[in-house]
Computed example of a mutant assay.
Amino acid sequence: MALLLKRFYEGYFWLMSEVADPRANDYFLMSSPIPTILIIILWFKFILHWGPDYMKNRQPFDLKKIMIIYNVIQVILNVYIVYYVYLARNVINWRCGEIDYSNSYWGRKFLSIAHLYYMLKILDLIDTVFFVLRKKTSHISFLHTYHHFGMVILAWVGTKFVGGGHSYFLGMANAIVHTILYCYYLLTSYDSRYGKLIWLKKFITQAQLLQFAFLILSYGQLLFQNDCKYPKIVSFFFVPQNIFMIILFGDFYVRNYILEPRRKKRQAAAKEMEIRKNYNKSF
Rank of each mutant, 00 (worst) to 15 (best):
K271M: 13
F13P: 01
R262Q: 15
I37C: 13
A268F: 08
W94I: 12
Y257T: 06
E272L: 14
V254Q: 11
A24G: 07
E98L: 10
I47D: 05
L123D: 09
S141W: 13
K56R: 14
G51W: 06
I40D: 02
K64G: 01
N278F: 01
I275F: 14
V239I: 03
Y279D: 14
Y168T: 02
T145H: 00
L200P: 07
I258Y: 14
D26Y: 11
F110L: 09
K229L: 13
F238M: 12
Q59S: 15
V132L: 05
L154V: 03
A173W: 02
N226Q: 12
K281I: 04
Y105K: 10
W14H: 15
S138E: 15
P231G: 01
L120A: 04
T188H: 03
L217I: 15
V72G: 04
Y257Q: 07
V82K: 00
Q225D: 07
K264F: 05
W14G: 06
E260W: 12
I204Y: 06
V82E: 00
H139P: 03
L187I: 00
G107C: 03
F130P: 04
V157L: 15
F238K: 02
N278W: 02
I68R: 10
I122R: 03
G250F: 08
K45M: 09
G164A: 07
F28Q: 08
W43R: 00
T137H: 06
F8Y: 14
H144K: 04
I39K: 07
G51H: 04
K121W: 05
F131R: 05
P52R: 11
Y9S: 15
A2N: 14
G195W: 08
L125V: 04
M30N: 06
I34G: 00
P261G: 12
L77P: 01
W156N: 03
Y83M: 08
M273F: 11
R95Q: 15
L120R: 06
Y184M: 02
L4K: 10
R23H: 05
